[in-house]
C-alpha cells in the first residue's frame, strides 16, 4: 500500500488517488511545425522510466487536488515535489 502525500490532506492511502501519468511528457508547443514523427512520439511512446519518475497524481476520493510527486518505480519510495 502506497502512502501518498497530498499537499492539502497529507499522507493518504493509494486507493484514494488516481495515477495521472508521467509529468515529464511535454506536448509539442507549435502544432504547425511539429512533424508526424514528433506527434507519434508524444501521443504513443513513453519514457516508462525504471527508477525515479516525476508523476502526476489526482486525489480523486479526497480534496480532488492534482499534484506531482517523484516516485521510484522499483522501490516505490516517494518524495513530495515541495521537498526537492
Amino acid at each position: 500500500m502506497l502512502l501518498i502525500p497530498c499537499p492539502f490532506c497529507g499522507e493518504r492511502e493509494e486507493d484514494e488517488f488516481v495515477f495521472g501519468g508521467d509529468a515529464k511528457r511535454e506536448r509539442p508547443t507549435d502544432p504547425t511545425s511539429t512533424s508526424t514523427e514528433q506527434w507519434v512520439d508524444y501521443v504513443y511512446n513513453s519514457n516508462n522510466t525504471k527508477g525515479e519518475s516525476l508523476e502526476w497524481w489526482w486525489h480523486a476520493q479526497g480534496c480532488t487536488k492534482w499534484f506531482r510527486i517523484t516516485r521510484n518505480t522499483v522501490t516505490h519510495a516517494i518524495t513530495p515535489e515541495s521537498d526537492r
Partner: peptide, 9 residues
Amino acid sequence: YPSYAQRGT
C-alpha cells in the same frame, strides 16, 4: 500505475 517492483498493490 506503472511499476518495475514485481510486487503489487
